[in-house]
Nucleic acid binder design. Structure first.
Lengths: 119, 119
DNA sequence: CGGTCAATGTCACCTATTCTAACATCTATC
DNA sequence: GATAGATGTTAGAATAGGTGACATTGACCG
């Protein structure tokens, strides 16, 4: 009898389902993994399997990308490197740069004024 | 943006996942469907897809089978045919029969005293 | 005991889904 | 225009899943 309680963290969803739930393409999902942003499990046959938390992460990535962030930025935001020299300040600088650098967003459809959090 | 809220009813799990979560075999899962006890959706490519509610149903079936019920019994229990002549009484009689008929359970491992509900 | 039925196992054959790797495209930036 | 980041596309191979048929097991019953 398996433990059904931890469904948020259990990897039960194949990539086809993830495509449906996130509206991302397989290419995108695999690329974000290659960039070290999601880490699905693998079946014995090497097929990726995702959890609901992975879905949330992917939707978050999608949202950040739409806001003009880079995958490298998002990676930093998700895994802040405390204790490493200059890293905190570097991240803050990147965020400041992003907020100043509205060029990407100006061309985009929705011109928003903030990111919901301030460095 | 898909609606992620109704995950209990959304069919997102392939049969391989269902096998893991229920500890049933593919043969059993498909047979219960053939007996009209579960009704998964199908992908465009004809692959079965299950929801969390389907998982619950399958675990319930498994439990009832372990208690000595027949798939036909379980179907009646799940879809009681009200309004049909004698059907209610028939089901009650079946339940009484099951409770009296301990032969199957005696051979089984766990000799239980009740079913949690009484007709 | 031999037959029957419900439930499950197993196998063969076919289709769908996913995998990796490589190359192409598009866009913003320098 | 060259570059880099993000994504599209395609080919070829492997895994996962589908159906259908036949075999097996264990109760039950005359």
């Amino acid at each position: 009898m398996p433990d059904i309680g931890d469904l948020r963290t259990r990897c039960v969803l194949p990539i086809g389902t993830v495509i449906q739930l996130t509206d991302l393409t397989a290419r995108q999902i695999r690329y974000y993994e290659a960039q070290d942003l999601v880490h699905p499990e693998r079946t014995a046959g090497n097929h990726r399997m995702y959890s609901l938390n992975h879905i949330d992460t992917l939707l978050e990535i999608k949202s950040q990308l739409a806001d003009g962030f880079t995958l490298a930025d998002i990676k930093q935001l998700m895994h802040p490197r405390h204790r490493e020299p200059n890293s905190d300040e570097e991240v803050r600088q990147m965020l400041r740069d992003e907020m100043m650098n509205q060029s990407r967003l100006n061309q985009a459809n929705n011109v928003r004024q903030g990111f919901g959090f301030r460095p």
